[in-house]
Every structure is written in structure tokens, then in C-alpha cells.
């Protein structure tokens, strides 16, 4: 299938592609409000526990967070290039670009895992399991609970994104995407970009805002 077939309810490919894009943007919109709810919690708790949040942000590993930011931005670039490749009739490039994106996603997850295990060793765990002795205030506990929930939900999205891109990499190996028909590939990349955008805001929230 892969969108090459015109479904009976549509009169033209242009309309079908428009519907597909609109549907995907609708889905992304729902993701925006999903993370919006979490950022609302973050902002409200930061308003309650300003100093403790600042201290906790300073405790996080700025180096890993920043490297991960650069990795995800790069992966967004590589995945955007797949659409460029499809449009420029260079479909041979699509599979390698997707592979590179997936690789970057895996490195991101690896670094994230290292960071989490550092936290675990310091007794920083979510909710009632929090054991750290140095930062005992309410604000620190809430901060790290939010940290695990928000980066955890984001990591789940990364994993899903990797799976989706992997599937498309296999499809791309069969040269299914042409300058005219690549809307499904484009939608998969949109999902990956969303994952990147979420991280663009998680990065300052958990690593940068020490002011």
C-alpha cells in the first residue's frame, strides 16, 4: 500500500495526501497537549519550589544533557533529509539516512540510561522511593519525580520513533518512495521531529535553567 493506492473515498491523490498530513498533524497536536500537561506541572511546581528546583537542575549532568540535545538536533536533520532525498529522486539515500537517525536515537537512549543509573546510585528515585540524603527538601523530590516521568515518557517516544523509522528503513530498501509518493515517510519523520521538539524544551527545564 504505502499510500500509492488511491482509496475509494478520495477523488485525487492531492486530497488523500492532504488528509494524511492533516491527520498526522492532528495526532501531533494531541502529543503537544499531552506534554503540555506535564510542562504545566513542571511550571507550577517550579513556582512553588523555585530555589529547590534551581539546586536540583544544577545537580543534573549538564554535559550529558547538552550532548543529547546536539544528538537529537542532528538526528532531526538526518531524518529531514530523507524527505529531501525522496523529493529529489535520490531514494537510495533514504535507508542509510534512516539508519543514521536510528543510530543517533540509540546513542541518545544509551546516554539517557547512563544518566538514570547515575541518579539511581545517588538514591535519586521517583516518588516515595526517593533516598538521596543531600537534597531532602520537598522541591527536590518533586523535581526528580517529574524528571523521571517527563524524560521517561520522552524516552518511550524515542523508542517508538526508532521502531517506526526502522520499519520505514526496511520499506525504503525496497525503493518505495518517489518524488510523488512519499507522504507516509514524511509522516514518520514528523513524529521524529516532534520527539526532538519535546526534548528542545526538556533540555532547559532539566539542565539549563539554573537561574
Amino acid at each position: 500500500m504505502n499510500g500509492h493506492r488511491l482509496a475509494e473515498q478520495f477523488s485525487t491523490f492531492a486530497k488523500q495526501d492532504h488528509a494524511a498530513r492533516l491527520g498526522m498533524w492532528g495526532f501531533l497536536g494531541s502529543e503537544v497537549t499531552l506534554f503540555g500537561g506535564l510542562f504545566a506541572l513542571y511550571a507550577a511546581y517550579r513556582a512553588m519550589y523555585g530555589h529547590e528546583f534551581v539546586a536540583a537542575v544544577g545537580h543534573n549532568n549538564l554535559a550529558i544533557g547538552t550532548i543529547n540535545t546536539l544528538i537529537l538536533l542532528t538526528s532531526s536533520f538526518t531524518v529531514a533529509l530523507t524527505v529531501w532525498a525522496a523529493r529529489a529522486a535520490r531514494s537510495k539515500l533514504i535507508a542509510p539516512l534512516l539508519g543514521l537517525t536510528i543510530l543517533l536515537g540509540c546513542v541518545f537512549l544509551l546516554l539517557k540510561g547512563i544518566e538514570w543509573s547515575q541518579h539511581f546510585h545517588q538514591g535519586i528515585l521517583p516518588g516515595l522511593h526517593y533516598r538521596n540524603r543531600e537534597m531532602q527538601e520537598f522541591g527536590a523530590k518533586v523535581f526528580f519525580t517529574l524528571y523521571f516521568i517527563m524524560t521517561g515518557l520522552h524516552a518511550i517516544h524515542v523508542v517508538i520513533g526508532i521502531a517506526v523509522l526502522g520499519w520505514f528503513a526496511v520499506q525504503a530498501g525496497r525503493r518505495l518512495y518517489t518524488p510523488e509518493h512519499h507522504v507516509t515517510l514524511e509522516m514518520a519523520t514528523l513524529y521524529w521531529h516532534l520527539v526532538d521538539i519535546v526534548w528542545i524544551f526538556l533540555w532547559p527545564a532539566f539542565y539549563l535553567m539554573r537561574g
Binding site: L22, G26, L28, G29, V32, T33, G36, F39
Partner: peptide, 10 residues
Amino acid sequence: VPSVAVALAV
């Protein structure tokens, strides 16, 4: 669509 979603999230 995304603009409305972002506005609501804000």
C-alpha cells in the same frame, strides 16, 4: 491544527 494545540498547551 498545531497552532491551536500549542496555544492550548500554553
